[in-house]
Computed example of a mutant assay.
Amino acid sequence: MTAPVDPGLQPERTELAWRRTALGVGVGSLVALRMLPDATGNPWWVLVGVAGVLIAVAIWVSGRRRLSGVRERMARDGLHARMPGAGPLAALVGLVLVTGVLGMALVALVSLAPA
């Protein structure tokens, strides 16, 4: 049996949460884009910031796509529409985990580098 979709504003609140997440990832990526090449002395670190901006766009698009999918399912199936899967959320958790570990490694490398 599938869980019913909330007919209220829950889909819109969820889409706003995805938008805030994309904004946070995008701003963090722009800061990395600006600061990492100077902090490490290697211009290739710009690619990390660019990749983060692209990921932020993908998160925003995913949130919009999920909202439109929920609306379509609600229009078609009513209150018994199936909820969207948790794949994008699991991918986001993985991204945050990898980013945190890489960030700690970068701080350790920069702080241990000879001056």
Results as ranks from 00 to 15, higher is better:
Leu67Ala: 06
Gly52Leu: 08
Val53Cys: 12
Val57Ala: 11
Val48Leu: 01
Val46Gly: 08
Gly49Thr: 02
Thr40Phe: 09
Arg66Cys: 06
Arg65Ile: 05
Gly52Tyr: 04
Ala39Trp: 09
Val61Met: 11
Leu67Glu: 04
Asp38His: 15
Val46Phe: 02
Ala51Pro: 01
Gly63Ala: 03
Asn42Lys: 13
Arg65Glu: 14
Trp44Pro: 00
Val48Lys: 01
Trp60His: 14
Ile55Met: 13
Val53Gln: 09
Ala39Arg: 12
Asn42Arg: 15
Val57Asp: 02
Gly49Glu: 02
Val61Trp: 14
Ala56Thr: 03
Val61Gln: 12
Ser62Glu: 13
Asp38Glu: 13
Val48Arg: 02
Leu54Tyr: 10
Arg66Glu: 10
Ile55Trp: 15
Val50Cys: 00
Gly41Tyr: 14
Ser62Val: 09
Val57Cys: 03
Val61Tyr: 09
Asp38Met: 13
Ala51Glu: 05
Ala56Trp: 04
Arg65Cys: 06
Ser62Cys: 09
Ala56Cys: 03
Trp44Phe: 12
Val48Gln: 02
Val53Glu: 07
Val46Cys: 06
Ile59Phe: 11
Leu67Val: 02
Asn42Ile: 05
Val48Thr: 07
Trp44Thr: 06
Pro43Gln: 12
Ala58Ser: 11
Asp38Ile: 14
Arg66Asn: 05
Thr40His: 11
Val50Arg: 01
Ala51Gln: 08
Ala39Asn: 04
Ala58Asp: 00
Thr40Leu: 11
Ala51Asp: 05
Arg64Ser: 13
Gly63Trp: 00
Leu67Tyr: 06
Trp44Ser: 10
Trp45Val: 07
Val53Asp: 06
Ala56Lys: 00
Arg64Gln: 11
Arg64Ala: 14
Ala39Tyr: 07
Ile55Leu: 15
Ala58Phe: 01
Val48Met: 01
Trp60Ala: 15
Arg64Lys: 10
Asn42Asp: 14
Val46Pro: 01
Arg66His: 07
Val57Tyr: 07
Val53Lys: 09
Val46Met: 04
Asn42Phe: 08
Thr40Asp: 03
Val53Asn: 04
Arg64Thr: 11
Ser62Thr: 14
Arg64Val: 08
Pro43Gly: 09
Val61Phe: 10
Trp60Gln: 13
Trp60Ile: 05
Val57Phe: 08
Val48His: 01
Gly63Val: 02
Ser62Leu: 10
Ala51Asn: 06
Ser62His: 07
Ala56Val: 01
Val57Arg: 03
Ala56Ser: 11
Arg65His: 10
